[in-house]
Design a protein around this nucleic acid. Structure first.
Lengths: 155, 155
DNA sequence: CTCTGTGCAAACACTTTGCAGCTAA
DNA sequence: TTAGCTGCAAAGTGTTTGCACAGAG
C-alpha cells in the first residue's frame, strides 16, 4: 500500500485476486465463486464493512448467495490471514482486507471507520519483558472520537 | 472476578466510590444502590468483564438486580466517563473502570484481556494534519495474540 | 411529590449450527 | 468420487425497548 490506497485499478484487482486464489490453494480451500466474490467485495472497498454490508454488495453479482455464506467466508478470510476483524466496541464485526500498514479512526457516534497512516505507528512494539508470555500477533493504534460529519451536529 | 488487585485497598475503594458519587451528582444522576454496586464491581476487578460477568458478581449483593439494569448502568458509566468499553473484535462488550494510563493485551483464543503498561504508549498522538477534521477522544495501543495459557495448547 | 431508575418481558440484531444437496478438485 | 462448500432454517447469544411500579432527591 504505497501509492494510492483509494484508487484500486483493474490491474491491481486482478493481481490481488490471483494472490488470493494462491492463498486458498495453500490453505487447502476450494476456489468457489462465492468465496471469490466475497473477497473481491471486501478488497474493493475501504469502508470496513460488516457481514451485512458485504452481503448487500455481493448479492448484486450473486443474487442467490446467503448471508451465512458471507459470514462464514469472512471468518475464513480472517483465519487464513487474507483479512482481519477491525477492532471495535462490541458492535457487529467489521472486516478489512487491506493488509498494508495503516491505522483506523473510529467515530463513536456514526461508527464510520476511516483509514489513516502515520509511519511511526507502524513500528510500534511491546518490549519483551512486558508481554508476560504472550505471543503477539498484531499491534495497532486505535483512535476513536467524533468524525467531521458528526462533530457538527453534536449537542 | 475474585482476585483483588493488591493496589486496591479498602481506603482506595472508599475514595473511588466517593468520587463516583460526586460524578453522578455532577451528571444529574441518582445515586441508587444498584448503580453503586455495578460501579463497585467493575472497579474492583481487573478482568474487563462483560455485562453478564458484572451481573453475576453484583447479584451476590443484590440478588434482585436485573441484567438489564447492569447493561444500562454500564452504558451510563461509559457515557459519563466513569468507565469505557474495551476495544474488541465484535464479541460481547467488555468494560473497564480503570481510567489510569494502561494498555490491553487481548487473547484471540480465550478472549482474556490483560493490562500492561508501557510508558511511551501513553504519549501516543496523531498529528493534526492527519486527523482530517476528526475530534480525537481516545487513543490506545491494542495488542492481540495468544496468551501464555493458550499458547501451550496451540495445535 | 416528581421524575429518574428499576425489573420484567418481549423484541431485536447479529452469529452460529445442523443438515441435505451441490460442486471444485 | 469425495471432501469441502453452500443455502436454508432454526437456535443461540447479546443488547435494546416499552411499560408500570418503586424509590431517590
Amino acid at each position: 500500500m504505497s501509492g494510492t490506497p483509494e484508487t484500486t485499478d483493474g490491474k491491481e484487482i486482478t493481481q490481488k485476486m490471483d494472490a488470493f486464489r494462491a492463498r486458498c490453494h495453500e490453505a487447502g480451500l476450494k476456489v468457489t465463486p462465492q468465496r471469490m466474490a466475497v473477497y473481491r467485495a471486501l478488497m474493493e472497498t475501504d469502508e470496513h464493512p460488516s457481514a451485512e454490508m458485504v452481503f448487500r454488495q455481493v448479492r448484486r453479482v450473486h443474487p442467490s448467495i446467503s448471508l451465512d455464506t458471507v459470514n462464514r467466508t469472512l471468518l475464513t478470510l480472517s483465519e487464513i490471514g487474507a483479512a482481519f476483524i477491525v477492532e471495535g466496541s462490541g458492535d457487529a464485526k467489521r472486516f478489512d482486507a487491506n493488509l498494508g500498514n495503516h491505522q483506523h479512526f473510529r467515530c463513536v457516534r456514526c461508527r464510520r471507520i476511516v483509514d489513516f497512516h502515520y509511519e511511526p505507528f507502524d513500528r510500534i512494539a511491546v518490549p519483551e519483558n512486558l508481554t508476560g508470555g504472550f505471543t503477539v500477533l498484531r499491534t495497532t493504534v486505535c483512535v476513536e472520537g467524533l468524525c467531521d460529519r458528526c462533530r457538527l451536529q453534536e449537542s
